[in-house]
C-alpha cells in the first residue's frame, strides 16, 4: 500500500455542513500527517462529531473537500471502508451476542476470521469477558469492545468519537493504554474527538481546538501552551465571598475571567512584575480581600478560556 507515502493521510479543505437550524461546521480545514494522532478538542456542540462523521463518510459535507489516502468517498467507498476503523459515539451492539461472536461478525465484513478475533481480545484485554453477552459488559468493557471492533481490520486510519466519555478514570486509562500501544507501533493515523484535555494531551501529537463549528487554534501541546501572547495564569479566590460579576473592567490592563460558580477566577497576566501589584491594588480598591492566589503553568483549559471566555466542560 502506498497509503502512507503521502505526507498527510487525511485532508479536509473548507468543509461546511448545516442542519435545519444550525451551522454545525463552518469552513474547517485540517490535515493529519501519516502515523500521527490528532485530537479534536472542544465542548459539546462544537461540531467535532459532525466533522469526524464527514471524514468517516457517514455524512456528506455541504461543501468542501475531504480525502483519505488520496481518495474521496465518492466512487471509493468500499476501498476506504477497508482502510479505516471507526468507533461512533454511543453505539450499542447486539445485546445477546457474545464478545467473540460480535468480533467475529465484524471480522467477517473484512473477510477476517477467528485468528484476528483472538488478537483483538488480547489487545483489548477482554480475555475474561470473551464469552459474556455484550449486554452484560461494563461501560469500560463495552468501550474497549467498540475500540476492538474499530481495530479489527488493522486500519491505517482510526477515527474515534469520544471513546472515553462517561467512563471512570480507571476505564479511561485502560483505553488510553491500548491507544498508546498503537501509537508506538506507528502504523496508524488517528483522529479522536474529546472534551477531556488530559486525553488530548496524553494521546495526541497534534491538537485542534474547535468551538461553534470553527477551529480556534491548533498545534502540539507545547505549541499551544507556548504563550506567544506572553500570558500567564493567576488563579485566586476571595475571603468569605464569591467573586463579583463586574470585576472585569475595561480600564484594567489584565483580563479577569470568573468561573460560572463564582468561587474562583483567573487573571490573564502578561508581565508578573508590573501587573501583579496592579492587580492586588485593584482588588484592594474594590474593598475585597484575597484568600488564596497562585500563579501556575498554563493548561489547555486556560487556553480554551482565554479563547472563548468559557471552560471547556461547562
Amino acid at each position: 500500500m502506498d497509503l502512507l507515502k503521502d505526507e498527510y493521510i487525511i485532508k479536509a479543505t473548507e468543509v461546511r455542513k448545516s442542519f435545519k437550524t444550525v451551522q454545525a461546521v463552518k469552513g474547517v480545514s485540517m490535515a493529519v500527517p501519516a502515523g500521527k494522532f490528532v485530537a479534536l478538542l472542544g465542548p459539546n456542540g462544537a461540531g467535532k462529531t459532525t466533522m469526524v462523521e464527514m471524514i468517516e463518510g457517514i455524512q456528506k459535507p455541504d461543501s468542501g473537500d475531504i480525502s483519505i489516502a488520496g481518495r474521496r468517498w465518492k466512487d471509493n467507498e468500499d476501498e476506504l471502508r477497508r482502510i479505516i476503523g471507526i468507533s461512533l459515539q454511543e453505539t450499542r451492539f447486539i445485546d445477546k451476542l457474545r464478545v467473540t461472536e460480535t468480533l467475529l461478525l465484524f471480522a467477517s465484513f473484512f473477510g477476517l476470521g477467528k485468528q484476528r478475533v483472538e488478537e483483538i481480545i488480547e489487545l483489548t484485554g477482554l480475555q475474561e469477558k470473551r464469552k459474556s453477552y455484550v449486554v452484560n459488559l461494563s461501560g469500560g468493557q463495552r468501550q474497549r469492545l467498540a475500540l476492538g471492533l474499530a481495530l479489527i481490520n488493522k486500519p491505517a486510519v482510526l477515527l474515534l468519537d469520544e471513546p472515553t466519555t462517561g467512563l471512570d478514570p480507571n476505564a479511561r486509562h485502560e483505553i488510553w493504554d491500548i491507544l498508546k500501544t498503537l501509537r508506538s507501533a506507528g502504523n496508524t493515523s488517528m483522529i479522536l474527538t474529546t472534551h477531556y484535555m488530559e486525553e488530548a494531551e496524553t494521546l495526541c501529537d497534534h491538537i485542534i481546538i474547535m468551538d461553534n463549528g470553527v477551529i480556534l487554534k491548533e498545534g502540539s501541546t507545547e505549541q499551544l501552551l507556548e504563550d506567544e501572547s506572553g500570558e500567564k495564569t493567576v488563579e485566586f479566590t476571595l475571603d468569605n465571598m464569591l467573586i463579583p460579576g463586574d470585576l472585569n473592567r475595561p480600564e484594567v490592563p489584565f483580563r479577569i475571567i470568573r468561573e460560572a460558580s463564582g468561587e474562583k477566577a483567573r487573571v490573564m497576566i502578561k508581565d508578573i512584575d508590573t501587573e501583579i501589584p496592579l492587580f492586588l491594588s485593584y482588588i484592594k480598591e474594590r474593598g475585597l480581600q484575597i484568600k488564596h492566589m497562585e500563579c501556575r503553568r498554563r493548561t489547555l483549559d486556560d487556553l480554551f478560556i482565554s479563547l472563548t471566555g468559557r471552560r471547556i466542560n461547562e
Binding site: E56, G57, I58, D78, R81, R82, I84, I86, L88, E90, T91, R92, F93, I94, F106, F109, F110, L149, N153
Partner: peptide, 16 residues
C-alpha cells in the same frame, strides 16, 4: 431497533 441504537450506522461503516 438497530437503527435507533446506531448499530446499522456502525455496520455500514464497514465493507458489509
Amino acid at each position: 431497533e438497530k437503527r435507533s441504537k446506531k448499530l446499522l450506522r456502525r455496520m455500514v461503516a464497514t465493507p458489509m
